[in-house]
Amino acid sequence: MNSESFLSSSRFDLLKSLILIVDDDRLVRMQLRVWLEADGYRVVEASDSASCLAAYEQYHPDLVLLDLVLPDRNGLDCCAQIYGMSGGSYTPIVVLTECEDEQSIERAFALGVADYVTKPIPWLIFRHRLRRFLEESQKNRRLETENQQLTRLATLDGLTRIPNRRRFDEHLDAMWRQMVREEDWIAIAIGDVDFFKAYNDTYGHLAGDRCLQQIAETLRQCCYRPLDLVARYGGEEFSIVLPQTNLAGALSLAERLRVAIDTLKIPHSGSEVDGIVTMSFGVAAARPDVNMWADLLLEATDAALYKAKSLGRHQAYGVKLQGTPQGS
């Protein structure tokens, strides 16, 4: 079977596969490159572990052919580092060696390498195994991508395309634990669209959906720190997790959000405030410890929102969680 028919028989698009060859022997690299490029693969070379890791990080190859003995490090140590890098767990690594060392073979497969091949490489046989490794790797990568997309969809609100209540709860729990460890502040803000039922009654539910979409995008753009999270809390309510933020900082942000919504100037003839769509915000902050629960902060935020609405809406009201140490 020639190279062309060999490749066309594959059910996968292997022609674009990139293979990283890591060997300090230039002649070995040259021979492997000739074989691989004849079968249509793309090739990157490295002669030691440092250049191997740099090439892996830059190119993210689909497979690595890795010599067991490198001038600056044991090849298996380099292999372990690759598996710890982004995407490394889905990259087949084939270890190359000139002798069969039982201890090294055991360690190689314990690390998770795809194969262990002695030199000189029996290319006519090995090329078929190589294709199988690449096919399996591509399937695993596709499955991982699909799983990530499903997870993302499960945590996005269908209407506004921002995180949903489930994602909010997950993020709040993670950030609460992190702030306990760091002994730092965390705040929550919940915003409610004023007189939204009247808006739907006046303009219809489609207009109401568009209004919520505009608000969601505005809130998202105003909360740009990496750990902040804006989510649709439910109905016309939006929630924001603000790690490393005390009460003063959270109130300042809530006020900025309130003004940003005003600036949209969405007409609302059914509103009792200014004839445009406005929002009320409840804010609560705490410096948590192991004896406190995130639910307490959430309850305090709900109470603050109720207070803001009872005071006439279109404002932000904040509270410090009872028992929180003073200071910032």
Score class of each variant (00 low, 15 high):
residue 128 H to I: 12
residue 104 S to N: 07
residue 141 R to H: 12
residue 126 F to L: 06
residue 156 L to S: 11
residue 106 E to S: 11
residue 121 I to N: 01
residue 98 E to I: 15
residue 153 L to P: 02
residue 98 E to M: 14
residue 128 H to W: 10
residue 95 V to I: 15
residue 123 W to V: 02
residue 112 G to A: 03
residue 141 R to S: 06
residue 116 Y to L: 04
residue 111 L to N: 06
residue 121 I to W: 00
residue 112 G to Q: 02
residue 154 A to M: 12
residue 112 G to N: 08
residue 125 I to D: 04
residue 108 A to H: 13
residue 95 V to K: 05
residue 141 R to E: 10
residue 156 L to P: 13
residue 120 P to A: 00
residue 155 T to E: 06
residue 131 R to V: 15
residue 153 L to T: 10
residue 122 P to F: 03
residue 140 N to V: 14
residue 126 F to N: 00
residue 113 V to D: 07
residue 97 T to V: 02
residue 99 C to K: 05
residue 147 N to L: 14
residue 151 T to R: 04
residue 103 Q to H: 07
residue 102 E to Y: 05
residue 126 F to K: 00
residue 99 C to V: 11
residue 155 T to F: 07
residue 107 R to M: 03
residue 140 N to K: 13
residue 119 K to R: 03
residue 158 G to S: 10
residue 134 L to Q: 08
residue 112 G to F: 04
residue 129 R to A: 09
residue 137 S to H: 09
residue 146 E to T: 05
residue 128 H to C: 07
residue 108 A to G: 15
residue 156 L to A: 13
residue 158 G to H: 09
residue 157 D to K: 00
residue 102 E to H: 06
residue 140 N to C: 11
residue 145 T to N: 12
residue 153 L to F: 14
residue 103 Q to Y: 10
residue 143 L to N: 09
residue 100 E to D: 08
residue 142 R to W: 14
residue 132 R to V: 11
residue 122 P to A: 02
residue 132 R to A: 10
residue 154 A to L: 14
residue 142 R to V: 14
residue 149 Q to E: 12
residue 102 E to Q: 09
residue 112 G to S: 03
residue 132 R to L: 07
residue 116 Y to N: 01
residue 97 T to H: 00
residue 102 E to D: 10
residue 97 T to M: 02
